[in-house]
Computed example of a mutant assay.
Amino acid sequence: MDTAIRNKILELLEQHRIMTVATLRPDGWPQATTVGYVNKDLTLYFLCGLESQKANNLMRDDRISLTIDHDTPELMVITGLSMAARARVVHDRAEAEEALRLMPLRYPQSQRQPLPFKMPTPDEVRIFRVTPLLISVLDYKKGFGHTDLVVC
């Protein structure tokens, strides 16, 4: 992967905290939901309820599509990422605890004051590791609808 494009992907991952994840429901229809995420390099982590529809969808089929972007008042400054990826349950306790430790650090207020709730333990949520297979880097500054496609 080209160093400049990799740096752009990492920059966009660091600038954002939420993503939209599309999974496949049992009836074949896609289900898109918004989740918070953390990343370590190009690997992303998100969590959800143990028996959520999203978790159940991923237990049947670990393929996901996701987007990471933000609203902007100017058309020609739109940037973002979309990915085709695999989302697999994290079974390693140390990896799960690390993902949970990193999650509140994405929110500046948690640096100044305690969270208004107790972070769940790895036994109370399902944590998914997202491994990108294909990343599309959207950057309108390079032209309307410009994307750089990266195979991982």
Rank of each mutant, 00 (worst) to 15 (best):
R106S: 07
P120F: 04
P73I: 10
M83N: 00
T79N: 12
F128G: 05
T72H: 14
D2E: 15
M83K: 07
D139A: 09
T72E: 15
P26V: 04
A96G: 10
T3K: 11
P120H: 06
D62P: 15
D61L: 09
Y45L: 02
D2R: 08
G49Y: 04
G49M: 05
V21F: 03
V151W: 00
I64L: 01
L44N: 05
T20V: 15
P26T: 03
E97H: 05
L102R: 15
A94T: 04
K8F: 09
E14S: 13
H91F: 05
G49F: 05
E98W: 09
T72M: 10
M1T: 13
L66I: 10
L24N: 01
D62Y: 04
L50T: 12
R106A: 09
T67E: 14
L47K: 02
L115P: 01
N39D: 10
W29N: 11
P114A: 12
D123A: 13
Y37D: 04
D61E: 13
T3E: 12
E95H: 04
T23M: 09
L81T: 11
T3G: 00
F128T: 07
R106N: 07
E98D: 11
M103N: 02
E98T: 12
V125M: 06
R126G: 05
R106H: 12
I127E: 00
K8I: 04
H146Y: 14
L12A: 03
Q113R: 14
F117V: 07
T3H: 08
E95C: 06
C152D: 00
F128I: 11
R129G: 01
S82K: 10
R129V: 05
E98N: 07
A22N: 01
L58Y: 02
R63D: 11
N57K: 07
L66S: 05
F117K: 05
I68S: 09
P108G: 00
N57P: 08
H70N: 09
P73G: 11
L81A: 11
T43D: 05
L138T: 15
C48Q: 02
D27F: 01
T121M: 06
L44A: 03
A99H: 06
S136W: 13
E14I: 01
A85W: 02
E14D: 14
L66G: 02
M19W: 03
S52T: 12
A99E: 00
D123Y: 02
K142C: 06
D69H: 15
V130S: 01
Y107F: 14
G145P: 08
